[in-house]
């Protein structure tokens, strides 16, 4: 167990897991879709020195993220992982190196979208009292956490130790009758796909969204939930075991 986080892994988590969840926000939250309505296609590239590079594409009221940032409308360079992480905490204001004429999208669309995402990922108790909000918040948190598992498993010292013990194959992370996520493992490299798994080699299934919320918030233990049956596992349990060790570490990054 490491007690410290590192800024490079945090940058990967922030870019691919947190900002990557804009994909799901635009899909699940009508207000997010409305913000993008009738907007021409636009893309924002993030390039972090000695860190991650990715592009967010906004097309037809939808969003998707891709690795790399060569074909983008707006380019946001960061001189270090710490600077990029500062963007996420609001302590750093980015200066585009490309796309000056599109700055209004950044200010009037992208910032409101990320504010909306933050509202769902760090919800107030008041918002959580609304059942629909609570469900969406949990879904978005689960997408973020699963994507963060891949980033932490690929970048973090402890995460790499865990992924180094994982055999090849796909893990299904499911909430019964609600949603599914795929975590692919190939040569100890992890990739999260925000869609259900076709042919899992291992599966971890939450009996309902509330159990997922409790686990992700640290209100419940995976081991205890497996013991009382509220989380089911099957298949290559060593894959699930190591994934859960990475998930423990993810909590340290997402709470930064």
């Amino acid at each position: 167990m490491l007690t410290q986080t590192d800024s490079k892994t945090l940058a990967y988590v922030n870019l691919f897991a947190v900002l990557g969840t804009l994909e799901n926000l635009c899909e699940l939250v009508p207000e997010a879709k409305d913000l993008l309505k009738d907007k021409p296609p636009i893309s924002i590239g993030f390039t972090v020195k000695h860190g991650p590079k990715a592009t967010l594409f906004f097309v037809d009221s939808c969003c998707h993220i891709e690795e790399g940032c060569s074909p983008c409308t707006i380019k946001l360079p960061f001189s270090s992982c710490e600077k990029f992480n500062g963007l996420m905490t609001g302590t750093v204001t980015p200066i585009p190196s490309k796309g000056f004429t599109k700055i209004s999208f950044l200010l009037k669309t992208f910032v409101p979208l990320t504010d909306m995402l933050a509202k769902y990922l760090k919800p107030s108790q008041e918002d959580l009292a609304n059942v629909a909000f609570r469900e969406t918040s949990t879904k978005l948190t689960l997408y973020t956490a699963a994507s963060a598992i891949a980033q932490v498993g690929n970048q973090d010292q402890s995460g790499k130790f865990s992924s180094g013990l994982m055999p090849d194959g796909d893990i299904a992370i499911d909430v019964t009758d609600v949603m599914g996520i795929t975590l692919k493992i190939k040569d100890h490299h992890l990739t999260a796909l925000r869609k259900p798994c076709d042919k899992p080699r291992a599966a971890m299934t939450f009996s309902n969204l509330e159990i997922a919320r409790q686990l992700l918030n640290g209100e419940a233990s995976a081991m205890a939930c497996i013991c009382n049956g509220s989380i089911a596992m099957r298949g290559m349990i060593n894959m699930i075991d190591n994934m859960n060790r990475i998930l423990d570490r993810v909590g340290q990054y997402l709470s930064v």
Binding site: M223, A224, I226, C227, N228, G229, A232, M233, R234, I237
Partner: peptide
């Protein structure tokens, strides 16, 4: 489950004992 961590902890319990299905 109310008075013992995990109800039954360790290798003789449902989690580490891999009781699949539970």
């Amino acid at each position: 489950f109310k008075v013992i961590p995990s109800g039954i902890y360790g290798h003789q319990g449902p989690s580490e004992g891999c009781y699949i299905p539970h």
